[in-house]
């Protein structure tokens, strides 16, 4: 029977295949988190076991070592190409969250990403953002055009009708493609359980704590939890009262913090 998860999966596969047909220089942002790991699985479904474009990881040097180990192992298992980008200049200048979280995100992530896009001339970038994560992401399109400064014109987005997306762009722009925009956090976990997808161990509770969202060490905290299996995580999420990104310090910096970061090219 064709259920909600089947529909989400089929739609995501359709989006990957659309982008693959329309763009030459594609890459997928691989953040090591559950969402991008699910995306990697969907890519392999779309392309019969292959990942036909590079995975891109923006390394802020503040990631948990378990994340880097998991990343390298999975990339090998999938036989994928990995491109790691860092804003070396900002790192050398000592950029860190103590200089302001928003500024740090902007420098190490948004700018780090923009540099990668320029170096490799990527025209289309897959990102695993979801509408239920946070308000400004909820307003996104599936194919979301960016200007040459990576800026998002969120006040004036082009229409997107049915399953027809904006896939023609002038040369000085790139497009962010969001294949799992319509998934919820619970959908992701249900799908991980259904498809038996391997996930970074930090998500599973150890000593009464687990990560619900993965990011940089200084700005991402674990939640109190005893959920150490997929079933327990799903059960926990059904009753939990906090939003998913509550452990992400940059989101809490000010009202509209995410909107402001994202307008300038944050993921």
């Amino acid at each position: 029977m064709y259920e909600h998860l089947d529909e989400l999966e089929a739609e995501s596969i359709y989006i990957f295949r659309e982008a693959f047909n329309k763009f030459d220089h594609l890459a997928m942002l691989y953040s090591v988190g559950k969402d991008s790991t699910v995306m990697a699985h969907l890519v392999r479904k779309a392309f019969f076991g292959k990942i036909p474009f590079p995975l891109v990881h923006v390394d802020t040097t503040y990631k948990y070592p378990e994340m880097i180990a998991f990343r390298d192992r999975m990339v090998k298992e999938w036989a994928a190409e990995l491109v790691v980008g860092r804003n070396e200049e900002a790192i050398a200048a000592g950029m860190g969250p103590e200089q302001g979280r928003m500024r740090c995100c902007e420098k190490l992530k948004s700018e780090g990403l923009a540099q990668l896009i320029e170096q490799h001339d990527f025209k289309g970038l897959f990102l695993g953002i979801r509408r239920d994560e946070e308000g400004s992401r909820a307003k996104e399109r599936v194919f979301s055009p960016r200007d040459k400064n990576s800026e998002w014109a969120y006040k004036d987005q082009p229409p997107e009708l049915w399953d027809q997306y904006n896939t023609s762009f002038s040369a000085d722009t790139h497009v962010r493609i969001h294949p799992i925009l319509g998934w919820t956090e619970i959908n992701i976990w249900e799908y991980i359980a259904r498809e038996k997808i391997e996930i970074c161990p930090l998500y599973f509770a150890a000593e009464g704590k687990r990560f619900r969202s993965l990011g940089c060490m200084p700005c991402t905290g674990p939640i109190a939890s005893t959920a150490s299996t997929l079933e327990e995580i799903i059960a926990e999420l059904r009753v939990i009262k906090d939003p998913e990104r509550a452990g992400r310090a940059q989101d809490q910096e000010s009202d509209y913090a995410m909107q402001k970061l994202r307008a300038k090219g944050y993921m």
Partner: peptide, 11 residues
């Protein structure tokens, strides 16, 4: 859909 100047202009 109809595209005009790279973007979807109507349906």
């Amino acid at each position: 859909v109809i595209e005009d100047n790279f973007l979807i202009g109507g349906g």
